[in-house]
Nucleic acid binder design. Structure first.
Length: 422
DNA sequence: TCTGGGGTCCTAGGACCC
DNA sequence: TCTGGGGTCCTAGGACCC
């Protein structure tokens, strides 16, 4: 028999993280906004009950917020990242193998435990006591089934936050309750196709002939069917995979109308991308810059520009990346009438990443770039706070910077953010 | 007026080679 | 001037995830 896998996630994670430090948020509707305060990306149960949808734009729910006194927060990723690490630390006390799947979800190796439900419930109590966020646990022979179990536990409080669906007779009974669109790996398009041929539940998808699944949705859908049948196709993987690309992209707080302002934003994004590379000990071989106007405004002139360039030699040096980004940004600039466009989003993407020590060398691999300067730059910005030292081309106006009008204090990582008690 | 950011995997099709 | 099959590699785009 295959080793049971658990998936553990936190209920409304961002909201739960905010509630740790502000008890007045308990029992009341709370939402957390996306970057730039654009739309709701996390909602408390109370906010969901008021009909606030995932991803709903803030400007469409202003009336509800006022009428029901919904508490609103900008995203505070520094805080959420730190809470996430604390939760993982507790998981590590309960299983030898943890695969971090997202900021609020982990797959856990649950093989070898005699009473899995008791074990998961003990872990759940411990996370609540030591970190302060509620979690739910689904257990099954495959990742897809574990996600189903987790989903059922989420919707049915009767399970007390833990459901072990390792026993096939239990999944026979429960899978008819899982709507096909709620299955891990089934998105909107595939859901529509499946419903078109009368497949509406996880139990019905499990019974779909494999050949038909492959024809309809490629090997991905075929794997989902096999996983529902209890045959693992998606391996448990607790080693961090070598990442292939990374991106820093942002909407602008106010639209960018001229090249100088746009380039200030792009300098900031390239700078951040270079920092991320160095944190991971990587160099990049390809850099892409893109920027575009607001696609939701069909009444305004539209433009989308993008250029890619190779980085030779591969680099993680801020000066190299900003220089390459400038060439791309200029090359992508509209040939005529650039100033009629209002750019609302820009980004820098890096691809062909390699660990620094694996990078290809040229015959004359002369020392270049400024590794000592980069080390000093990172040290200063870690010690004295982000953006203490920046390139001048990032500018001082920061008019492009995103909005975050409702951000809570970074309680666990920034001393200066703590409220002063007099 | 106001609509996020950062990833992965898969497939089709073109370029190129022998 | 006409004519083949099979392989690899790369890129763009779609779908999905949280």
């Amino acid at each position: 028999m295959t080793r049971p896998i658990a998936i553990s996630d936190s209920a409304n994670f961002y909201v739960s993280a905010e509630r740790i430090f502000d008890p007045t948020l308990k029992g009341v509707p709370v939402i957390v906004l996306s970057n730039n305060d654009g739309c709701a990306v996390a909602r408390s149960d109370e906010a969901k009950a008021l009909g606030i949808k995932m991803g709903e734009p803030l400007h469409l729910i202003r009336d509800k917020i006022t009428a029901h006194g919904i508490r609103v927060f900008s995203s505070n990723y520094t805080l959420y990242g730190d809470i996430s690490r604390r939760v993982v630390a507790v998981y590590e006390d309960y299983t030898p193998n943890v695969e971090i799947y997202s900021i609020d979800e982990c797959f856990l190796d649950f093989g070898g435990f005699k009473d899995r439900v008791a074990h998961a419930k003990a872990m759940r109590r411990d996370v609540l006591r030591r970190v302060g966020v509620p979690i739910r646990v689904g257990i099954a022979p495959t990742k897809t089934l574990a996600k189903c179990a987790n989903d059922i536990a989420k919707k049915n409080p009767i399970f007390g936050g833990v459901l072990d669906m390792t026993d096939p007779s239990l999944s026979d009974w429960l899978l008819p309750l899982v709507p096909v669109g709620d299955i891990w790996g089934i998105g909107r398009k595939t859901q529509a196709k499946l419903q078109g041929i009368g497949i509406n539940s996880a139990a019905e998808l499990r019974a779909m002939p494999l050949r038909q699944a492959r024809a309809m949705g490629t090997v991905v859908l075929e794997r989902t069917v096999l996983e529902l049948q209890g045959e693992p196709c998606i391996a448990f993987d607790d080693v961090e995979p070598q990442r292939k690309g990374m991106a820093v992209t942002r909407s602008a707080g106010t639209p960018m109308q001229d090249f100088d302002t746009l380039f200030q934003a792009i300098t900031a994004h390239a700078t951040r991308a270079a920092e991320k590379l160095r944190q991971h000990g990587l160099v990049a071989g390809t850099l892409t810059v893109f920027y575009h106007t607001n696609r939701h405004r069909a009444d305004r002139p539209q433009y989308a520009g993008s250029r890619t360039t190779r980085l030779i030699p591969m680099s993680s040096d801020t000066f190299d990346l900003v220089a390459a980004a400038k060439r791309c940004a200029l090359a992508a600039w509209p040939k005529i009438g650039g100033s009629v466009y209002a750019f609302t989003k820009a980004g820098v993407m890096l691809d062909d990443l390699l660990p620094l020590e694996d990078r290809p060398r040229t015959l004359f691999d002369l020392p270049r770039g400024s590794p000592a300067l980069m080390t000093a730059l990172d040290a200063v910005n870690t010690r004295f706070g982000k953006k203490t030292l920046v390139l001048a081309s990032e500018g001082m106006s920061r008019s492009w910077q995103l909005r975050a009008d409702h951000r809570s204090p970074r309680y666990t990582t920034r001393l200066s953010d703590l409220p002063v008690v007099k």
